[in-house]
Design a protein around this nucleic acid. Structure first.
Lengths: 198, 198
DNA sequence: TACATATTAGTACCTGGTTCTAAAACGGTG
DNA sequence: CACCGTTTTAGAACCAGGTACTAATATGTA
């Protein structure tokens, strides 16, 4: 096996299992530990501990940002069965790295979560929605979603909620949501529903 | 400061910043490094490297599943400008831990990503959509989304895409998407658009 | 004062490396 | 064949960030 072939294989092994030590690599590649280390040096692959550290650091931010993902956006004002406002900062993890444009389901998620949160009920689930992405949202922009409850049937019925999302003065998204509400958990046969609840 | 107070503070510090070394802890708590180590021993807190290793291992699976998050769902069949199929397993991270029901924006995200992916263009962005969550989706269910391109304007125009998502034979979601397409990047003034691209 | 608990000190040892020097093996070329 | 450059291997010193263990010194308290 040539040097290049070996280094390619080394890349594949470490890519497949980043937790491999140099000692394990000597067994798999049948070369001395010095050769392994020279190879890593040439390929710019850090040592095991550094790899683990980078993984831990990298994913630490994501873990921290997950709670903010449960309800997409932070609800700053909520008048149950009436209206609500939520703020959502578009960060790295919400955009396509390719062009810095926010992924649609995050913008949708903010509006949807808010629409469901304003409904004062045990379980509220989005049944249907009509949405428009008015203009694209970019990395770093702050989305402010405003929800207004338009109509409200009795318990177990549907509610209509309009959500408008702005970046500054500009409208970026609008949605009309039909949200199902039911006081008791088991109202499940054939119901037209699914989705979020604060 | 009593031993208990110090240990509580040690817990808080490490919780706030898991990447702290014992040496740094001695500076913050003003005790010897042996005391720090006895405290960690009593509290069952592993050493820094072990903490990083556990974080890396724990999040490794999630990291592996993140590429499948960029496009929500795995596209298994794709005929550009015609149709596409994507599969999406509802896992822990996609549901509300409270009731095991999938969050709406994941189900939406799968359909939306697929709708955009079938459009054969440099950038394709969802302009608007009409969606219905026909029935709720639960943890462990496998969503199969099928997209059909209904109409297709020329370059720079809009396309209409219908997406139906099933769990087994059951329809769980349906959406009608208007997707904007534009060949050149700078078609940005006032355009009604935003969203996803494969 | 005596005893227990808490704290500090110090040493040997561990893993999984880096860095450096140097020797050997391999492969072609004149 | 000898010579040379590359590649590989070997070995020793050193490092961070610890563990494990022994032992000495506070500190409180009955």
């Amino acid at each position: 096996m040539s040097k290049k072939e070996r280094q390619q294989q080394l890349l594949r092994i470490i890519d497949g299992n980043p937790f491999v030590t140099d000692r394990e690599l000597t067994r798999q590649l049948k070369v001395s530990i010095q050769t392994i280390r020279l190879d890593r040096l040439e390929l710019g692959i850090p040592e095991l501990r550094e790899r683990m550290k980078q993984m831990a650091e990298h994913t630490y931010d994501q873990v921290r940002s997950l709670p903010a993902d449960e309800v997409v956006g932070e609800i700053v004002d909520l008048q149950l069965d009436k209206s609500g406002i939520s703020i959502f900062d578009i960060r790295e993890e919400h955009v396509f790295s390719r062009n810095g444009i926010a992924r649609g389901h995050y913008v949708f998620g903010q509006a949807n979560s808010l629409a469901v949160a304003v409904i004062n009920d045990e379980i509220a689930l989005t049944a249907s929605a009509e949405i428009r992405f008015v203009r694209m949202v970019r990395l770093g922009e702050k989305c402010i979603a405003k929800a207004q409850v338009r109509s409200l049937a009795g318990r177990g019925g549907k509610a209509e909620v309009d959500v408008f999302t702005y970046v500054g003065e500009e409208l970026v998204f609008q949605g009309h949501f039909i949200v199902y509400r039911s006081a008791n958990e088991d109202h499940s046969e054939g119901g037209i529903r699914s989705a979020d609840r604060h």
